[in-house]
Design a protein around this nucleic acid. Structure first.
Lengths: 338, 338
DNA sequence: TAGTTAATTGTAATCGATTGCACGAATCTA
DNA sequence: TAGATTCGTGCAATCGATTACAATTAACTA
């Protein structure tokens, strides 16, 4: 006894047409109050639920948006998704999630699947391994709004929401300088991603602006894991003039750095300051709470959703918006000397 | 120049019927090889993409499943979602996510919205504040499979995937006893949720089985945050015979416990052992890595997906499956005396 | 009272894809 | 060569809801 009621069932029960039922349910003013009331009541009684699929097919709007991220259980991304969901749910949108596992082929797959599913828009963070852009243009050709958050590629017509990574790098470095550090190293990530380049640029400029020397040897590109932190410390401490601080583009790498420094008996923050990046939950809970850059993922998600909403409203005009959010430096124990 | 191609467009271009195009695209054997090839080529050329909405309406299967959790950015839940997504994506399903913020009304809302969206199933973790069950029966009346993971309510016809919380509580407590602890306290959560009751029961039984006295004063029900950990320690240490170990039902509470103990100069694990629950990422990264119970969320997600898949297959038979996964005790520094 | 007008409701097309049934043509059988 | 198959396509209904347009009825005007 599966109860799947359609407007036709209601119509039959009341001896009217489906059209009448539809109008009554939608509060169409052309329907008499009596009929409307009757329809409403029977609908409730029969436990009617509008079939959004039929509506979507008719209207061309599915009220679904696709969100593509590398992994949904990475805090940064799940927080962004949270922001997106909370912004869009009240407007009747649902969020469909996809993971790329950082693979370009999965990204292409996901996009195609979402287009097939007739999503009203796609919000995504580009995979690390993505080199092509044709699949993005594909989306635009279908008039489906596309928004990049955090990680982006240069594609005409795509709006982006990012944080000011340059500023983040600059501020973090400046803070270290103000703490009295003068030999500041930087652990970067894969330069295929703009974000890492920008953090690096901010770092470099901050050094120069404060009269410090820029030293090539102090910049290391690494993977984003703990082990990379250990290895980097090893490398840096082997230099003739080892650094006295590290600005890392990853909290995980920074964690490895801290572990390695402690193992070697180097005191933090007295002898060595450390700043990470992302404000991963664990940074706050460490014995020595870790300074880091908060990327405000929930806000980033909300903003991405807002940008998407603007796109669907002005469907005719192709607006290409570039929103840059200000990062927030979280100064904690690992970089607070006094 | 939005290119939204339908089978009718292809049909027109080739001077055939939409039926023919449909059959060709679906590799229907009744179509001639020549026509099939022609259709395939033109479809590719015209950048045709199947409209899954139309298909869903026709077939009654949307190939979407809804997943409802309190918050998607809680690691435990996002990891479950990851498991679900990775299990279902290869089969053509998409995952729609909803958040309840632990509110019953939102839960009801979400369920209705998902039913309207014609999802093929709903996988969820019940909100802490949920008391009713009628909205669950609603789902079943529509013949939509419903699966509870981790947090469940007793509803006939609903399959569940949980871990053995009793066993988890038992094992954690037993481990503490084996480490030489004899006055073990337990910090529990809201007993409206079975999981907390079960962990408590396991704890209690382990004490009794090992000839230890069960002490009411050693059991405190708290919220699941850091502050609760601090306060609980305060309370427990004020007892005439304070405990020498704590098994907490929450990693966050356990973190607060550890912070408070350290503040008071109590050595861990020498004087006091601590075990948390959930294997939150931060537990591993602490100075003193925290012992905890891993709930295997990714596996739980995958298993939930599998249970759902069984349900849709045997649509006629109403199977009510109860899967119980074995928890995994992660023994780390905070409970390792030797 | 004939003719208008307004108020309701019905008719039927539409969104895009699928599929049972029917039909024409080509091939085969005896 | 007449009759039976087989093959490839077309026709039209269907999924559920919406919505121009048409039609009916009642009420109103002059």
């Amino acid at each position: 006894m599966s109860e799947k009621t359609t407007i036709y069932d209601i119509a039959k029960a009341l001896n009217v047409t489906a059209a009448t039922v539809s109008r009554a349910l939608n509060n169409n003013p052309k329907i008499s109050a009596a009929t409307r009331k009757l329809v409403m009541e029977t609908a409730a009684k029969m436990n009617y639920k509008q079939n959004k699929l039929a509506l979507a097919l008719k209207s061309g709007k599915s009220n679904n948006v696709g969100v593509i991220v590398p992994y949904i259980d990475r805090n940064f991304f799940s927080a962004i998704i949270r922001g997106i969901e909370e912004e869009l749910y009240p407007l009747g949108y649902h969020v469909i999630i996809c993971q790329t596992h950082e693979e370009e082929s999965a990204e292409v797959d996901n996009i195609n699947a979402l287009l097939n599913a007739q999503v009203d828009g796609i919000l995504m963070s580009v995979s690390k391994l993505t080199t092509q852009t044709s699949h993005f243009e594909h989306v635009l050709n279908k008039d489906v709004p596309l928004v990049f958050f955090d990680r982006k590629k240069d594609v005409k017509g795509v709006s982006t929401v990012t944080i000011d990574d340059y500023q983040a790098g600059y501020n973090a470095t400046k803070h270290l300088i103000e703490q009295g550090c003068s030999k500041i190293a930087h652990l970067s990530g894969d330069w295929a991603l703009e974000i890492y380049q920008n953090r690096y640029k901010g770092y470099k400029q901050a050094l120069l602006d404060h009269g410090l020397e820029f030293n090539e040897d102090y910049v290391i590109k690494t993977k984003s894991d703990i082990k990379a932190g250990h290895k980097s410390v090893e490398t840096l401490l082997a230099l003739d003039t080892p650094p006295d601080a590290i600005f890392s583009s990853s909290d995980y790498v920074a964690l490895g750095v801290i572990q390695e420094l402690k193992k070697r008996g180097i005191r933090i923050p007295e002898d060595f300051c450390v700043i990470g990046f992302s404000n991963e939950p664990f940074t706050k809970f460490m014995e020595l709470s870790m300074s880091t850059v908060d990327q405000l993922p929930v806000e980033m998600g909300k903003m991405s959703a807002k940008v998407f909403l603007e796109q669907v409203k002005e469907s005719s005009v192709k607006i290409e918006k570039k929103v840059v959010l200000a990062p927030s430096l979280k100064i904690r124990a690992t970089s607070t000397k006094k």
